[in-house]
């Protein structure tokens, strides 16, 4: 807490003096002010670390990255600069990071779309094999929600209606290259239930389209905004996409329980990744610090208690998550 108040003072003193470009310096200043004395083994990190987020600033990915960056910063004694590099559904950032030096000074937030699906759909110079996994920061299931006035009161109602009127119910998804979109495609291919997936950009646009009654349902990445709407009753959750029920929606069935046993993959995983060939000592330094941070109360509070897995998954586990995803989606996306 003393550290935070010191920081606050710093910011207050510096802010009035700056304008325009001078702000770059300030970020450095107040950030290094928080640096703990603790130096990691082998001298890593001995200079600021760039943490690339493959999306525009402001979304859940940035919030997660910033929360962890400030914790890693305190633990490892070096600045972690969060840099947003949007464009090409995350493809640009991934391409850059995959070709960076694997020295631990360029890291990125690896997640389903940019890392696994985008290179399958588009010709990109990278694939999942060009990265080194470090560990999981957060994971969010996808929820099927309808509006409060919806005629569908349960998942059974919804899927029965979809079965009766194939290709009539519209469901907004967060984009074409997302797990959510592909799970709906699998719903059709493997279970013969056809709904129209309407790709939108981000949770904000999806929320608008459901509140305005422009689509019948959302298959949306669970996040604080979705939860607050569910709490207030304007969204009604019908089903979750995770393998098991979510603790925070104990009454909401999983898709698997509803008979779609294979549809358990629309879970967004936010992992820390680096370029291929990062030395083991660096990976394990980062991995153990990441574990500490995933138990940090401030971090958990900022990201949301339910999204930081209680049991930390390290490098090996993360590797497996993305490899599984790759195996699963290759036959579906490879055909295009």
């Amino acid at each position: 807490m003393t550290m935070r108040s010191a920081l606050k003072k710093n910011t207050v003193v510096f802010l009035p003096a700056l304008a325009g470009l001078a702000m770059m310096g300030l970020v450095g200043c107040s950030a290094s002010g928080s640096a703990g004395a603790q130096e990691a083994e082998g001298g890593y990190p001995s200079k600021p670390v760039t943490f690339v987020v493959p999306f525009a600033a402001g979304g859940p990915s940035t919030v997660t990255a910033l929360a962890f960056a400030s914790c890693l910063e305190a633990g490892l004694g070096q600045t972690f600069v969060v840099e947003n590099q949007p464009g090409g559904s995350g493809g640009l950032a991934m391409q850059d990071v995959s070709s960076a030096k694997p020295d631990g000074y360029t890291l990125t937030l690896g997640t389903n779309g940019p890392l696994v699906m985008n290179p399958m759909i588009n010709e990109l110079n990278y694939s999942i094999k060009d990265f080194t996994s470090v560990g999981v920061m957060a994971q969010m299931p996808t929820v099927l929600v309808v509006g409060e006035d919806s005629p569908y009161e349960s998942a059974d109602d919804f899927f029965a209606a979809a079965d009766k009127n194939p290709g009539k119910l519209s469901v907004a998804v967060p984009g074409a290259t997302t797990s959510a979109a592909i799970e709906l495609q699998r719903l059709y291919e493997e279970y013969d239930i056809e709904v129209i997936a309407v790709p939108a950009v981000g949770n904000a646009e999806m929320t608008t389209s459901l509140l305005g009654g422009h689509v019948d349902a959302l298959f949306i990445t669970d996040h604080q905004d979705v939860q607050s709407r569910i709490d207030k009753g304007s969204f009604v959750p019908l089903a979750v996409s995770s393998p098991e029920r979510a603790d925070w929606y104990p009454d909401v069935p999983t898709l698997a329980e509803l008979g779609f046993t294979e549809l358990v993959n629309a879970v967004s995983v936010f992992g820390v990744m680096g370029p291929k060939g990062m030395p083991d000592p660096i990976v394990s330094t980062l991995e153990s610090e990441l574990k500490t941070c995933s138990e940090d109360a401030t971090v958990i509070d900022q990201i949301g208690e339910m999204f930081v897995p209680a049991e930390f998954s390290g490098a090996a586990a993360l590797d497996e998550v993305f490899a599984d995803m790759q195996r699963l989606y290759e036959p579906i996306l490879g055909q295009e």
């Binding site: 600033a57 402001g58 919030v63 709407r229």
Partner: peptide, 23 residues
């Protein structure tokens, strides 16, 4: 709680970091 452009989306993010969900 719906940001209508990139700048407002960042304001939204700033509030989230504070543990406040605009809505």
């Amino acid at each position: 709680g719906i940001p209508s452009n990139v700048v407002l989306a960042m304001l939204y993010g700033a509030l989230l970091l504070q543990g406040i969900t605009p809505g």
